[in-house]
């Protein structure tokens, strides 16, 4: 939903009820519809978890990529046509000339996601929002897509917002990470720092709740008790407190602010994991 807000695409009856979204110093919330048209798909592109439902099943893949450029004014008709094959090549689709004439159902899952990425890149956006781009894919295909995204980021300088529940995927691709819980950022900072020294109990538990392929000995997983809260009836105080194993009395009453806890690292917690002794951390596992 945060990503949809960035694109000013919040579905009715929802709306952006306050605040500002600045993209290159322009406020997205107050853009006119023609400005928004250029912005969406032009400056910012989005790719989704399930590429089959985001591609039109009855149009050829090449045509759909061309269409993405024709909808915007950066490339004229001839340029748009000429760019399709190089774009497919760019995302490593084999024999792109033939493949451009295929329909989406003739593509495998990984290739569809590549085609989506090609479409997203068509107008040379400065930001690519990737919403769980590899969740529906097998690990070997996931590895290919992650490498591709890294390459685009490095070579074209495209900024990427990667939305994922998979902490290892985040670790693989992201320089900075923001952890969200119940509609709020609860922790943010450089990925390495946050993953090595998580300060919010939610981040700490999340990192220990998934088995690691590099685990040396069998450790019991931390299970986060309970369920994610109902967003229309959030708990008082810190929204994580009903599931938090380190809460203090204050957490039930007052919501903590997002505060700097180390250089570049912010967390929204009254307790902070650094103040929890190793023994009581271990006791919760």
């Amino acid at each position: 939903m945060t990503a949809l807000s960035i694109l000013n695409l919040v579905p009715e009856p929802g709306r952006i009820s306050g605040g500002q979204i600045l993209f290159k110093n322009r406020d997205v919330v107050s853009m006119t519809s023609s400005e928004l048209h250029e912005y969406r798909g032009g400056d910012v592109a989005m790719i989704f978890q399930d590429p089959m439902t985001s591609l039109n099943p009855v149009l050829r893949v090449g045509f759909q990529i061309e269409e993405a450029m024709r909808a915007h004014s950066r490339f004229d008709k001839r340029q748009a046509k000429a760019r399709v094959i190089p774009l497919l090549e760019r995302v490593r689709i084999p024999s792109p000339k033939q493949r451009a004439r295929d329909f989406p159902f003739q593509f495998s899952g990984g290739m569809r996601q590549r085609a989506m990425i090609a479409m997203g890149l068509a107008n040379e956006p400065s930001l690519l929002i990737a919403d769980e781009p590899t969740t529906a894919l097998d690990v070997t295909v996931q590895a290919q897509i992650l490498e591709l995204l890294k390459e685009l980021n490095r070579e074209l300088g495209t900024a990427i917002i990667l939305i994922s529940h998979n902490v290892a995927v985040i670790s693989s691709l992201c320089t900075r990470v923001m952890v969200m819980y119940a509609g709020r950022i609860v922790e943010s900072g450089p990925t390495r720092q946050v993953f090595e020294h998580p300060e919010h109990p939610y981040t700490w538990s999340l990192l220990r709740s998934v088995p690691r392929v590099d685990e040396r000995r069998h450790e019991r997983l931390i299970s986060i008790q309970g369920m994610p809260p109902d967003l229309s009836r959030l708990p008082t105080g810190c929204t994580f407190h009903p599931r938090c194993q380190f809460k203090v009395e204050r957490c039930l009453r007052e919501e903590p602010p997002l505060e700097e806890v180390a250089a570049d690292q912010e967390a929204r917690c009254w307790v902070l994991m650094r103040n929890v002794s190793k023994e009581s951390q271990a006791a919760r596992t």
């Binding site: 690990v139 590895a143 290919q144 290892a168 995927v169 690691r212 392929v213 590099d214």
Partner: peptide, 18 residues
């Protein structure tokens, strides 16, 4: 192909792409 959660280890992983 599996990314490591540990960013340190992850930085040194060399995926073999099929």
């Amino acid at each position: 192909s599996i990314p490591y959660t540990d960013p340190e280890l992850e930085a040194h992983r060399k995926p073999i792409l099929l």
